[in-house]
């Protein structure tokens, strides 16, 4: 072949409007997975303030909890974790051959989204309490 043309990644993320449910589930699962890994490091960093004694730890946590942005981020974290867990369960079922039909896997993805939404909405008051 004399020459050919490689269209690169245009078709991958350029066509996001045409992504099907399963593709979105995959994208969200990857994304939430990375966010959770990132959070793990923040988590360790915050907890390790305890190395400087009780007072430092208490002060760090209280200081953080006073910030509205931290509370909002916590809600976000819950959303991310909830989706990752629920979709993870969905994927386990798919691995076991349950719900592998095209429309079933779509419905189970929407179900995990809706459940995530409900969990987040319900827990907003808890997170924002006493701000």
């Amino acid at each position: 072949m004399s020459q050919s043309h490689n269209r690169g990644l245009v078709e991958d993320f350029g066509r996001w409007r045409e992504f099907s449910a399963g593709m979105w589930a995959w994208v969200f699962h990857k994304f939430t997975g990375w966010v959770l890994i990132g959070y793990l490091f923040t988590h360790i960093a915050v907890l390790s303030s305890a190395l400087n004694g009780d007072a430092a730890y208490t002060q760090t946590l209280q200081g953080l909890e006073q910030l509205a942005v931290v509370r909002v981020l916590e809600v976000g974290l819950l959303a991310v974790a909830a989706f990752h867990i629920l979709n993870g369960i969905r994927l386990l079922f798919i691995d076991l051959g349950v719900g592998t039909a095209l429309d079933t896997q779509e419905k189970s993805f929407y179900a995990s989204l809706i459940l995530t939404g409900i969990i987040v909405v319900v827990s907003v008051p808890v997170f924002l309490e006493g701000l």
Binding site: S20, M23, A25, W26, G97, A101, Q105
Partner: peptide, 26 residues
């Protein structure tokens, strides 16, 4: 296979590809 279901969605002969791949994994 990461079960995106993209293949199953587009197959013009409606072959349940992801299902088949999963079965072979098991």
């Amino acid at each position: 296979c990461q079960t995106q279901f993209s293949c199953t969605t587009v197959c013009p002969k409606d072959i349940p590809l992801t299902e088949h791949i999963q079965e072979l994994k098991r």
